[in-house]
Amino acid sequence: MTPPEFRVDPDVDLHVPADRGELAAHPTAVLGTIAAGGVLGALARAGVQAAFPHAPTGFPWATWGVNVTGCLLIGALMAVLTTRPTGPLVRPFLGVGVLGGFTTFSAYAVDAQRAVTAGAAGTALAYLAATLVGALLAVWAGDAATGRLLARARRRPEPTGEGR
């Protein structure tokens, strides 16, 4: 039997059996879970940005760091979720909520616009490119490194309890 074509989260691929498990959760539960995670992620991002402010003409290191770190963690999370069974609300909470709220395209765009307006077009272009390249490399690295660690952990023999 195929699941209904209804979904709250557009990231759910109905052709992937593990993703279809998320359809078992009620839409209200999924949205509430995403919202709760989003609050935590947005608060963490706001804290980092408040701790490391920058001038309009300066490179926005806090936003860049948040976005690259968030992408690294998203890559790691997706590697875990594709190899380990989890509940139907884990990915919506951590991936869409926490990490979606933590990373920020809006601040990325505003930081670039402010730099251009302040006369630092070169800084804006460097920031735009560094974020794009850094985010793509980070998500790849998070996925690849976590995948290797999980594969290594699966190959490791379980302790037998002998010699204790």
Score class of each variant (00 low, 15 high):
Pro56Trp: 07
Pro56Arg: 06
Pro56Lys: 11
Pro56Gly: 09
Pro56Leu: 11
Thr57Cys: 12
Gly58Gln: 15
Gly58Lys: 10
Gly58Asn: 14
Phe59Val: 12
Phe59Lys: 10
Phe59Pro: 06
Phe59Gly: 11
Phe59Asn: 12
Phe59Met: 13
Trp61Lys: 08
Trp61Asn: 11
Trp61Glu: 09
Trp61Val: 14
Trp61Asp: 08
Ala62Gly: 09
Trp64Phe: 14
Trp64Leu: 12
Trp64Tyr: 11
Gly65Ala: 07
Val66Ala: 05
Asn67Val: 01
Asn67Glu: 03
Asn67Tyr: 05
Asn67Cys: 05
Val68Thr: 07
Val68Gly: 03
Val68Ala: 04
Val68Tyr: 04
Val68Ser: 02
Thr69Cys: 14
Thr69Pro: 03
Thr69His: 06
Thr69Trp: 00
Gly70Ile: 03
Gly70Ser: 10
Gly70Ala: 08
Gly70Gln: 03
Cys71Leu: 07
Leu73Thr: 02
Leu73Gly: 02
Ile74Glu: 07
Ile74Tyr: 08
Ile74Met: 15
Gly75Met: 11
Gly75Ser: 12
Ala76Lys: 04
Ala76Gly: 13
Ala76Leu: 09
Ala76Thr: 07
Leu77Val: 11
Leu77Ile: 09
Leu77Phe: 10
Leu77Ser: 10
Leu77Trp: 08
Leu77Asp: 10
Met78Lys: 12
Met78Thr: 14
Met78Tyr: 13
Met78Cys: 11
Ala79Arg: 03
Ala79Tyr: 04
Val80Met: 13
Val80Cys: 14
Val80Ile: 15
Leu81Tyr: 10
Leu81Trp: 08
Thr82Met: 15
Thr83His: 14
Thr83Asp: 13
Thr83Asn: 13
Arg84Cys: 02
Arg84Lys: 12
Pro85Ala: 13
Pro85Leu: 07
Pro85Ile: 03
Thr86Met: 03
Pro88Ser: 08
Pro88Glu: 09
Leu89Pro: 00
Leu89Gly: 01
Leu89Thr: 00
Val90Trp: 10
Val90Gly: 06
Arg91Ile: 01
Arg91Thr: 00
Arg91Leu: 03
Arg91Glu: 04
Arg91Trp: 01
Pro92Ile: 02
Pro92Thr: 07
Phe93Cys: 06
Phe93Asn: 05
Phe93Val: 07
Phe93Trp: 06
Phe93Met: 08
Phe93Ser: 07
Phe93Ile: 03
Leu94Cys: 14
Leu94Ile: 15
Leu94Asn: 12
Leu94Thr: 12
Gly95Glu: 10
Gly95Val: 09
Gly95Lys: 06
Val96His: 01
Val96Cys: 06
Val96Arg: 01
Val96Ala: 07
Gly97Asp: 06
Gly97Thr: 05
Gly97Phe: 01
Gly97Cys: 10
Gly97Ala: 11
Val98Phe: 12
Val98Thr: 07
Val98Lys: 08
Leu99Lys: 00
Leu99Pro: 03
Gly100Lys: 05
Gly100Leu: 06
Thr103Lys: 03
Thr103His: 04
Thr103Ala: 05
Thr103Glu: 03
Thr103Trp: 02
Thr104Ala: 05
Thr104His: 00
Thr104Glu: 01
Thr104Trp: 00
Thr104Pro: 00
Phe105Ser: 12
Ser106Arg: 05
Ser106Asp: 05
Ala107Gly: 14
Ala107Trp: 13
Tyr108Pro: 04
Tyr108Gln: 09
Tyr108Trp: 15
Ala109Val: 14
Ala109Gln: 14
Ala109Cys: 13
Val110Met: 14
Val110Thr: 14
Val110Tyr: 11
Val110Ser: 14
Asp111Cys: 10
Asp111Pro: 05
Asp111Met: 08
Asp111Tyr: 04
Ala112Asn: 11
Ala112Pro: 12
Gln113Ala: 15
Gln113Tyr: 15
Gln113Leu: 15
